[in-house]
Design a protein around this nucleic acid. Structure first.
Lengths: 210, 210
DNA sequence: ACGTTAACGGACGCCCCCGTCCACTTCGCT
DNA sequence: AGCGAAGTGGACGGGGGCGTCCGTTAACGT
């Protein structure tokens, strides 16, 4: 809650805290939540003890690290729900969240399932869920969204985004765009399907060399 | 080499080997590949050494355990590709694989990414991929499948299936059915969309107790 | 400049998991 | 029944990750 008023820390402490957070954000985004605390400490050029003094547990660090992305996520939903054209708003939400997802490997894990306990997360989630439900209804009333779908379908799709193949960020982003476009086409009521983004070459794990 | 021929094992050894395989299959399916070897041994009422004598490494056990599912997967693809109606064949493949996937938590991981080294896996995969490519072309020529899609899109969707929310088998299966139906609708060329399976209530992780 | 005190980080304990070793047991054959 | 070999399981070593302790360092006030 009080988050220790970082400006009351000694200058070096504040500096180190910032570097830790930055390293955590980068490493979590790149490699998911499995990154060892040691690795983050090393990347921040800090000893493990320092890291643990600012963030008593790994969960605390995860929460702090993803606060920004959480805000971004809330913003995406808010903006999309504010769009007068509900379908356009929904499309934007799906695309942006899917991309956020692909760019930040661990975000969905941190947010939706991984560890319980992050209070802010729960609050944000229920708020977003409520807003999305409203948007969903409006989109269906406008005849843009299939009437036989529910918000849970969206959640399902977002969760499914977790399973997208790993790989370099460029590939991940391409796969995410393609995925989002396909999802949207499956939710659309009218068959007015626009052009798809380029197909994503999925990493076929070239175990047979060649 | 000669370590095969399980019928040449002593009767108790053969018995234990079978129990180990059975336990491995069950636990991997239920909880994914993260299950400790000890747990499998315990479940099979066997010491760790016994387990390791039959399957020198965890990978070996995984390979052996998923041989059946691999065969099932191949069968699904073969049957689907043999269907004179390419769209119906494709639908069946998507539905069945997605369900296989939901039922066997670790299967896709074992097959597509997890560990390299399983020779059989690679062979099966390239064969299935070739067959699927043919089916894909036929479905597109028949006008049932969107012309701007590629086989990689299917792979993408199957991979995405890994991210479906965890939970009791019943929920997982429901989510998988819903997911498969939505995928199929996004790949279909004609807007002749049939009724969807019941929406899957996604586990909202009730962290806020109540 | 200098002492106080917050902050630092290397070293430590703990736990879990993989894979191995060895003294004992059980099967199978005669 | 008896004997040898195959088989078994408890105990062990190695590695890695999380979180903690304590001697040392360096920032801040006077």
């Amino acid at each position: 809650m009080d988050d220790q008023l970082p400006q009351m820390l000694r200058s070096d402490a504040r500096d180190n805290r910032d570097r830790v957070l930055e390293a955590a954000r980068r490493l979590f985004s790149e490699q998911g939540l499995g990154v060892p605390m040691r690795e983050i400490a090393r990347r921040a050029e800090v000893g493990p003890a320092t890291l643990y003094r600012r963030f008593p547990t790994k969960q605390a660090l995860i929460d702090a690290a993803f606060t920004d992305e959480l805000r971004a996520c809330s913003g995406i939903v808010r903006d999309g729900c504010a769009d007068p054209d509900p379908w356009r708003g929904l499309s934007t939400i799906v695309r942006d969240i899917t991309e956020l997802n692909a760019t930040n490997q661990g975000f969905v894990d941190a947010f939706v399932s991984s560890y319980p306990g992050a209070v802010d997360f729960a609050a944000h989630r229920s708020g977003m869920l409520r807003a999305l439900t409203g948007l969903w209804r409006r989109a269906q009333q406008a005849g843009a969204l299939r009437p036989d779908t529910v918000v849970d379908d969206l959640i399902l799709m977002i969760m499914a985004g977790r399973g997208l193949p790993p790989g370099p960020p460029t590939l991940r982003a391409a796969a995410a765009r393609r995925f989002a476009a396909l999802i949207l086409d499956s939710l659309r009521a009218s068959p007015t399907t626009g052009p798809l983004p380029p197909p994503a070459r999925v990493a076929h794990h070239a175990s047979t060399n060649s």
